[in-house]
Design a protein around this nucleic acid. Structure first.
Ligand SMILES: [Mn+2]
Ligand SMILES: [Mn+2]
Ligand SMILES: [Zn+2]
Ligand SMILES: [Zn+2]
Lengths: 136, 136
DNA sequence: AAAGTTTATGCAACTGAGTTGCAAACTAAT
DNA sequence: ATTAGTTTGCAACTCAGTTGCATAAACTTT
């Protein structure tokens, strides 16, 4: 668990057993998962502990959250270098067939021209459609 | 209420008293409002009736819904000509100061290049920042 | 090592948005 | 007026997210 520990400590998160476990699960995922998805990956677990673990991870920018419109926030690992700044933002994709949410990590969010006197802090862009896996 | 009635019937919605009232409230709004916002504009009202009214309006494309990430879906009137097709989609703005959600009706959602074999049905783009009103 | 302090975990209980079922009220057509 | 279809109101429920509090575990200081 040396690697996992390092990832945690480098983000100023104390590496507890619980947190290592959660980080390992998140690392395995090819798609973003919700709190209840995460909960179901344990035989016995406490939702609140997992909830707070995710909150801590997000706060320390180890993961980022995605509101894909399904009603449950999804979470995915950030890149090593990610500081969750506007330049780290990318498009997310929700597949209407398999219901999975993906990070399109290499598709940056296009910049837009806002009306005068509007300032931007953050942008959420979720594309819904059918993923390559589900398109035959 | 002739005008209100016409708007309803032109979208194939039977003009009941309740629906006229809701449409009038929605028409007055400069920003998108949630179900509970709407509920609070009545002295006495039934949340479920308002809920179903909004659902009907949305289904008939009289209004569209916006998931701004606050946890409550917001609703705003569609343009007369709107068919809620991709070409009708526009950017939405959530002000972190006044907590209001606006339609940026004349800012279309920029098109993006998805990975191969991904197809698009819908795009949700919400910009968060400070609106002109709150920027002095 | 023991005592004290901080931090993490587990359990219970709650909030708030959204939703369903069903019966009463209403509307439109015969 | 009778009927059939639609809308409304009330109760009750689901489910994600959240808070409070007590215990457990991890560090700090002596
Ligand atoms: Mn992502
Ligand atoms: Mn809009
Ligand atoms: Zn898919
Ligand atoms: Zn504002």
């Amino acid at each position: 668990m040396k690697d996992t520990d390092d990832k945690l400590t480098s983000r100023n998160i104390k590496p507890t057993a619980m947190r290592e476990l959660v980080l390992d699960i998140l690392t395995e995922q090819k798609m973003a998962i919700s709190l209840s998805d995460l909960e179901q990956k344990f035989h016995k677990s406490d939702k609140v502990t997992l909830y707070r673990t995710l909150k801590t991870f997000e706060e320390k920018k180890l993961i980022h959250s995605i509101d894909d419109g399904t009603g449950a926030i999804k979470y995915a690992l950030c890149k090593e270098t990610c500081q969750c700044h506007p330049e780290d933002l990318h498009v997310h994709f929700f597949c209407l067939k398999c219901q999975h949410t993906f990070c399109l990590s290499n598709i940056p969010i296009p910049s837009i021209n806002l009306p005068v006197n509007f300032s931007v802090e953050n942008i959420n862009m979720v594309v819904k459609g059918v993923c390559s896996n589900c398109n035959d």
